[in-house]
């Protein structure tokens, strides 16, 4: 700003503008930007969401509800819940352990470790599925061993769980690491000096400090786990009533010309997404400071 003139600006009409206006734009620019932003959000985000519900209800509530009473739909719901019930706690434990090791200690190679944990974020879902086919498929790395012992990993629940764990792997860790880093180690050190055990210090000091961030991360992790399509599609085998998750069931119904049912099941997932967003927003408004550290990343 070396070339800035060191005198008060002259407004066109010769008066000095109120202080507020120097840090914002003229009203018409403001409203134009708001209009652009809202139109963009409406066109790209809100409209698809409305479409899901509109198409789902295109033939009335009877047809809508019928989509969920079908046995294949129910087994898809059960499978999706099962997969999330295994994958989310797994990533929760992993995320907390990883965040503890990374945030509370200084050691060499930390940046590399963080980058590696991040890796699944940028791996294509299809590749995430492919790698497990290469490891556990009949002709894969462990294929012969698994075959010998009659263990089915891919095209069965374990493969779907593994692929889901992979795609949601960084969620909890990435949320907690900056949060725990920001909180430092003094409180834990105090507790330990006063004689608390490590586990006790974690439970009574660390956990309360990170609980909202943790809940927030688990929520997102869960939404992604229940909604994963590409990776699961590669390892599922699409066996009806056995290895179809809800997103796969959406695709199947769509391919069976059963568009109403397809969008009905999709609306269930969209509803889950909405609930996730609502809770997430509530958490953000109420505990903004507790979770702020991690949000920058995703």
């Amino acid at each position: 700003m070396s070339d800035a003139v060191a005198s008060l600006p002259d407004s066109p009409d010769g008066t000095i503008r109120p202080a507020q206006s120097v840090v914002t734009e003229r009203p018409w620019i403001r409203w134009l930007l708001i209009a652009v932003a809202l139109t963009f959000l409406a066109l790209f985000l809100v409209l698809p969401l409305i479409t899901v519900f509109a198409q789902a209800l295109a033939k009335g509530w009877g047809a809508y509800l019928a989509a969920f009473t079908e046995p294949d739909a129910q087994s898809a719901i059960r499978l999706t819940l099962t997969v999330a019930a295994i994958a989310v706690p797994f990533n929760l434990v992993f995320g907390v352990a990883a965040a503890w090791a990374i945030a509370k200690f200084e050691f060499r190679g930390k940046n590399l470790l963080v980058t590696l944990i991040d890796l699944p974020f940028s791996v294509s879902p299809v590749v995430s599925g492919l790698i497990y086919v290469l490891v556990f498929g009949s002709r894969g790395l462990f294929g012969p061993v698994l075959l010998e012992h009659d263990i089915q990993i891919i095209f069965a629940v374990p493969g779907i769980v593994l692929a889901t764990v992979f795609v949601t792997f960084p969620f909890v860790a990435r949320q907690l690491i900056p949060l725990m880093q920001e909180q430092g180690t003094t409180e834990e050190e105090a507790a330990l000096t006063l004689g608390a055990s490590g586990w006790h210090a974690f439970r009574t000091v660390t956990l309360p400090n990170i609980r909202w961030g943790l809940l927030y991360a688990v929520l997102l992790c869960n939404a992604r786990a229940m909604g994963e399509f590409g990776a699961v599609s590669v390892v599922s085998g699409h066996i009806r009533g056995l290895t179809n998750t809800l997103p796969l069931h959406v695709e199947i119904l769509y391919n069976e010309y059963n568009f109403v049912a397809s969008f009905a099941v999709a609306s269930l997932l969209a509803g889950l997404a909405l609930v996730t967003l609502v809770i997430k927003s509530l958490l953000e408004w109420r505990y903004a400071d507790d979770i702020a550290a991690g949000t920058r990343r995703h």
């Binding site: 708001i34 959000l41 985000l45 809100v46 899901v52 997102l220 399509f229 959406v250 996730t276 967003l277």
Partner: peptide, 28 residues
């Protein structure tokens, strides 16, 4: 920066693609 009716709603909507399964987004 700006305050307008529905700002918080718009803010919440931004995260929709994080939470909405990709297959659902695809057919929609």
């Amino acid at each position: 920066r700006y305050d307008f009716p529905g700002r918080k709603l718009a803010d919440a909507v931004v995260d929709l693609p994080f939470a909405l399964p990709t297959a659902v987004a695809g057919i929609a």
